[in-house]
Amino acid sequence: MKRRTLLAACAATAAAWPACQALAQGYPERAVKLYQGFAPGGNADAIARAVGVEMGKAFGQPIVVEAQPGAGGTIAAATVARAKPDGYTLLLATGGHAVAGALYNALPYKTVADFEAVSTVTYFPFLIVVNAGSKAQGLAEILASAKAAPGTVAYGTAGIGSTHHLAGELLTKMAGVSMMHVPYRGDAASVTALLGGEVPFIIAPPTAVLSNIQAGKLRAVATTGPQRWPGLPKVPTVAEQGVAGYDVRSWAGILAPAGTPRPIVDRLNAEALHALQAPSVRQRLEDMGGEARGSTPEEMKALVARELEKWTQVVADAKIPRQ
Rank of each mutant, 00 (worst) to 15 (best):
V248D: 05
P233D: 04
P200K: 05
V221M: 00
V235A: 02
A244T: 15
I202N: 03
T223F: 01
Q241M: 03
P233K: 08
T207K: 08
R219P: 00
Q227E: 15
D247L: 10
L232M: 10
T224H: 01
G216I: 10
R219A: 02
L210K: 09
P206V: 12
P206I: 12
A239Y: 12
Y246R: 13
R228N: 02
Q241W: 08
R228Q: 05
G231D: 10
V248L: 00
T207E: 13
G231A: 14
N212S: 14
A204M: 08
A215F: 11
V209I: 09
V221D: 07
K234P: 01
L210D: 11
A222Q: 12
K234E: 15
I203Y: 04
A208E: 11
V243K: 11
T224C: 02
G216L: 09
I202F: 05
I213M: 00
P236F: 04
R219Q: 04
T237C: 01
A220I: 00
N212A: 09
Q214Y: 08
V235L: 03
A215V: 13
I202M: 03
P205R: 07
V221N: 03
P230A: 07
G245Q: 12
N212V: 04
G245S: 09
I203H: 04
V243M: 08
T237S: 04
S211E: 14
T237Q: 10
P206G: 14
Q214F: 00
P200S: 08
